[in-house]
Design a protein around this nucleic acid. Structure first.
Lengths: 134, 134
DNA sequence: CAGCATCCTTCCTGATACTG
DNA sequence: CAGTATCAGGAAGGATGCTG
C-alpha cells in the first residue's frame, strides 16, 4: 500500500534505473539483510535457527526481509509439509553469486575501519587550508 | 539528539561490530551516496555541479550526505576563500579505494536485474513443491 | 514451529524560506 | 554560490499477541 506518487517513490525508481550500485543496495541494503545473507553463506537454516542467530531482530522484520530476499530470487524458501512445521531457507544460485561481492564489501569495510582508527588517533587535517596549495 | 538506549541504536551498534559488510553499507548505503560517489569517480566537482547532476536531490540531503562522506574520510571538501564562494568535492585516497568495489557491486546489480527479468517473463517456480524432491 | 496482524516509535527524507 | 534552519510526511523498524 505504498503511495506510488510520493516523491520518495519517484526518487527510488530513478535511482534504481540509475546505476547498478543503487540497485544492488536496494537488495542487500536493509539493516538486517547482510546478517541474514552471511548466515546463509554457511548453509541452509531453519527459520528459528536464523532468528536465534541474529540477536535483536524481531520476527516481523525477519520475515519481511526474508520475503524480500525471496522475491529478489536470492533466497529459496523450502516448506516441509510436516507437523510440526519446518521451513528452511537457502541461498539460490543467484544468492551464491553474491559471495565474492559480499566478501569484497566486508574486506573493504574492515580495511576502512582500520584506516579511520589510525587517522583519528594520529592527526587532524585542516582541509580548508589545502585549497591554497593546489 | 538520538536516544542511545533505544533498541534501534543498540541494534545499530551490534551490526556495526558484526561484519565488515554492515559497516560498509553504513557508509555507502544512504539513498544518494552511490550517486554522489559515482559522480566523483569522474573527478572533482563543485557543489552546484553535483546538485544539478543528481536530479531530485534536495540541498539539505545533499549536504548531509556529503558531510557524512567527509566524516568517513571518503570525500574531501575544498573551500576556496573567494567571492563568490567556491567549494569543490573530491574523493580521498580512501574514497578511490572503493572504485573496484563499487564496480563489483554495480556489475552484480546489472547482472541480477537481467536474470530477474528473464525469470519473470519465462516461468514461475513453485518452491513449495520442491521440498519433496530433495 | 513458523509466521501474520496490529499498533507504535524512530528515523530519514524533502520542501521551503532564509543567510554569509 | 553554498549553504543553514525549520517543519512536515512517510517509510522502516520494533513490541506484542494470536493462529494453523
Amino acid at each position: 500500500m505504498r503511495k506510488e506518487n510520493s516523491s520518495n517513490a519517484i526518487n527510488e525508481r530513478q535511482l534504481r534505473g540509475d546505476c547498478g550500485t543503487a540497485y544492488t543496495l536496494q537488495l542487500i541494503g536493509g539493516r538486517w539483510k547482510p546478517s541474514i545473507l552471511w548466515r546463509l553463506l554457511d548453509g541452509k537454516l531453519r527459520y528459528n535457527e536464523l532468528k536465534k542467530s541474529i540477536s535483536g531482530i524481531s520476527e516481523r522484520v525477519l520475515v519481511l526481509q526474508l520475503r524480500e530476499l525471496e522475491n529478489d530470487n536470492l533466497v529459496k524458501r523450502i516448506v516441509y509439509p510436516e507437523v510440526p512445521p519446518r521451513v528452511e531457507y537457502e541461498l539460490t544460485p543467484l544468492g551464491w553469486s553474491m559471495e565474492s561481492m559480499l566478501q569484497h564489501i566486508s574486506d573493504w569495510g574492515v580495511m576502512h575501519r582500520k584506516e579511520t582508527m589510525a587517522r583519528q588517533s594520529g592527526k587532524k587535517k585542516t582541509a580548508v587550508a589545502m585549497a591554497d596549495k593546489g
